[in-house]
Design a protein around this nucleic acid. Sequence first.
DNA 1: GCAATGACGCTCT
DNA 2: CAGAGCGCCATTG
Length: 118
Amino acid sequence: MPEQAPESTYDRIYAVVRKIPRGKVSTYGRVAEIAGLGRAARQVGYAMAALPDHTTVPWHRVVNAQGRISLRRGTGGDLEQHFRLEAEGVVFDVSGRISLERFGWSGPRRKRGTSGGD
DNA sequence: GCAATGACGCTCT
DNA sequence: CAGAGCGCCATTG
């Protein structure tokens, strides 16, 4: 299944987010790095905010480097993300944080390959 | 083309 | 481990 060539930076970010395996989460900075943006972690979040409600992109698998949801309150999006992640098997800390050591996805790692990983 | 904004990251305290 | 400050880069007006 040939992946559609990203026309803009946003599409590039979405492409990376779609690569995140279910039950795992990634950070904005990591996604930005994989997308080729480097340290433009802000643009990743900006792109997420531009996502429509009917999007197929698993934006809820993207959290900040602290393993916490950065969504602003009032939108209810943070609650939605939290609920979705738990449905995928992700466990939250008592402080509402995720153990990136266990659920953190570092992207296409060359190590341990061949088994397909996901 | 310039100025302002933003679902962030890293470092120091 | 938690909080505050500075830096980062792409999109929008």
